[in-house]
């Protein structure tokens, strides 16, 4: 059983966000990037557990990203993955998640893969697109919002739990498959210092964007992608809009209406 885990190098959760001068994304200057976004890290941990507990043969970590994204691969190698593949994009490339899925699928298609694991969504664009799009492009079933999984290698079946609104579904499905993980069975491990030093010697393959694009041409479906038109930060706070009311019920109704229709948070 060969496992592939896809991760994304994203800004640290505590980074102060500033808009880039082209107004399309954050300004990366001074931003600390990390792989420690909850879902990808959980996916990496789960992939490693498949190797340790369920006898998977190898774990390969793959990313699409600029040169700095190699750090994310090194991190997962330090956690214990065996090999890495880096589909390298220009530093300023802003890729649509469907494009990312196509680049990944083109490369993954040429690698042994029984289970492809991704985090539910990246911590930056929060799209959650790559997992099930990969399923379509690789012609595999995809299972998303998975919270638990146990493979049975003999029957090539996965027993899984997945989040559904209001609860959890226990289900099973065959693999090879793509799994989008909501959370793993265990807290992601912290790479130890000796493992960090060892990971430097593990194989890391670079695939150029052009090469990945060529490989993606063989995939089914017509490539289409969205494009970010503009990026916006919430306006600075200028003091609260005060609710005028006679009775508590009136205050509640007015507030709920604003939260729903204006703030769109309910």
């Amino acid at each position: 059983m060969d496992v592939i885990v896809c991760v994304k190098h994203v800004p640290d959760a505590e980074t102060r966000l500033r808009a880039a001068s082209n107004g399309k994304w954050i300004d990366p200057d001074g931003v600390k990037f990390t792989v420690n976004n909850t879902y990808d890290e959980a996916a990496a941990e789960e992939a490693l557990r498949l190797k340790e507990k369920c006898g998977a043969k190898s774990v390969r970590v793959v990313t699409v990203g600029p040169p700095r994204a190699e750090e994310a691969l090194r991190y997962v190698l330090s956690m214990g993955a065996d090999e890495a593949t880096h589909i390298e994009t220009p530093a300023d490339a802003l890729l649509d998640p469907l494009t990312v899925a196509r680049l990944l699928a083109g490369v993954i298609k040429t690698l042994p893969h029984d289970i492809v694991m991704v985090g539910k969504q990246a911590a930056d664009d929060e799209a959650g697109v790559v997992g099930s799009a990969l399923g379509a492009l690789l012609g595999l079933p995809s299972y998303a919002f998975v919270t638990e999984l146990a493979p049975d290698a003999a029957t090539k079946t996965l027993k899984m739990h997945r989040y559904v609104e209001g609860g959890e579904e226990h289900f099973q499905g065959p693999f090879p498959a793509v799994i989008s993980l909501l959370k793993g069975a265990a807290d992601p491990r912290t790479p130890t210092l000796p493992n960090i030093l060892k990971a430097r010697k593990k194989p890391l393959t670079k695939v150029s964007l052009a090469d990945a694009q060529t490989r993606a041409q063989a995939l089914p479906g017509a490539p289409a992608s969205g494009a970010v038109r503009s990026f916006a930060l919430p306006p600075p706070k200028t003091g609260a809009k005060m609710i005028e009311y006679q009775t508590p019920d009136e205050a509640a109704e007015k507030l709920v209406k604003l939260l729903r229709e204006e703030a769109k948070v309910l």
Binding site: T34, N36, E70, E71, R74, Y75, S78, T190, P191, T192, L193, I196, L197, R200
Partner: peptide
Amino acid sequence: TAEQKELQALAAKFAKEE
């Protein structure tokens, strides 16, 4: 070096989380 950044990140993570 990339390796020093990783060691730094490990120490920072342990320091912050534990």
